[in-house]
């Protein structure tokens, strides 16, 4: 089972259709109680600088956050930007995992497949970007 961070990374990067398909699977069998409708807010980015290895605040990023319950179990959905549907779908999936509903047993394989597609797409992107890798040569001083 992927960690929560890996799971949310795949879900955020995989796109709306994939998120919606998992969330709808949970919605079909479990009533969803929206605790906090999608809300805009800020997350402060904390960076570790490389000169003295200290931490500082780089600035804030807008996010959309939602919370739902499945049974008595809370789930959180949050992502950068303004996307209410994504926040709700993420919250439903998180609550489903936290409540360990039966549907989640089949989701890990789907997440792994989605992650492979993301990795392939990223590798293709990188392969094009790497055509700008430069090899400088120093000239002899005469």
């Amino acid at each position: 089972m992927p960690s929560r961070r890996e799971r949310t990374r795949i879900l955020v990067q995989a796109g709306p259709e994939f998120r919606r398909s998992l969330a709808d699977e949970a919605r079909r069998t479990h009533p969803i109680d929206v605790v906090q409708p999608p809300t805009r807010g800020l997350v402060m980015v904390q960076l570790r600088e490389s000169a003295k290895r200290t931490r500082f605040h780089l600035g804030e990023v807008t996010v959309t956050e939602a919370k739902v319950r499945i049974g008595g179990t809370l789930g959180l959905g949050i992502l950068a930007g303004d996307d209410s549907e994504a926040a709700l779908d993420l919250a439903v999936i998180d609550a489903a995992y936290n409540a360990q509903i039966a549907e989640t047993s089949g989701w890990d394989a789907q997440l792994a497949a989605a992650d492979e597609a993301i990795a392939r797409s990223q590798a293709e992107h990188d392969a094009v970007l790497l055509t700008t890798r430069v090899s400088f040569e120093t000239m002899e001083v005469t």
Partner: peptide, 12 residues
């Protein structure tokens, strides 16, 4: 807007 969270320290 309310500040909801702070990220973990992120290394470049």
């Amino acid at each position: 807007l309310p500040r909801l969270h702070i990220t973990v320290p992120i290394d470049g």
